[in-house]
């Protein structure tokens, strides 16, 4: 890399932003005030977690975290739908 400093600074900036975003989503998860907000906060935390995993892979210069990010994405979607189904129908699989 010809200019490693630029990308390194960008990665650290992104780490800061995404971590703050994760904390804010967690505050919303604690505050509530109702079920839909908590589901939404969990969904957002999953998205931010994917971002953090990707940034970790970038900072270490490897591709091995790709599967982890993909699995977190899939689990996050399925759990969001599962929570919503439970609230809507009182049951997940009828």
């Amino acid at each position: 890399m010809s200019d490693p400093d630029l990308v390194t600074y960008a990665i650290w900036f992104a780490f800061g932003c995404v971590s703050l975003a994760q904390v804010m989503a967690m505050v919303r998860l604690i505050l509530g005030p109702n079920t839909a907000d908590r589901i939404l906060a969990l969904d957002t935390m999953t998205l931010n977690a994917i971002g953090l995993i990707v940034l970790l892979g970038l900072a270490q210069g490897t591709q091995i975290y790709f599967e982890a990010a993909l699995i977190v994405a899939m689990l996050g979607f399925v759990s969001t739908v599962g929570y919503c189904r439970f609230v809507l129908r009182g049951d997940i699989i009828e």
Partner: peptide, 26 residues
């Protein structure tokens, strides 16, 4: 150099939008 700049720019844009998303949530 161009690839490095593009990487840095897209990382910064992504970080800012992620931040704004959670800020809006709060």
């Amino acid at each position: 150099l161009i690839i490095d700049i593009a990487t840095a720019v897209s990382l910064v844009i992504g970080a800012v939008f992620t931040f704004v998303g959670s800020y809006g949530l709060l």
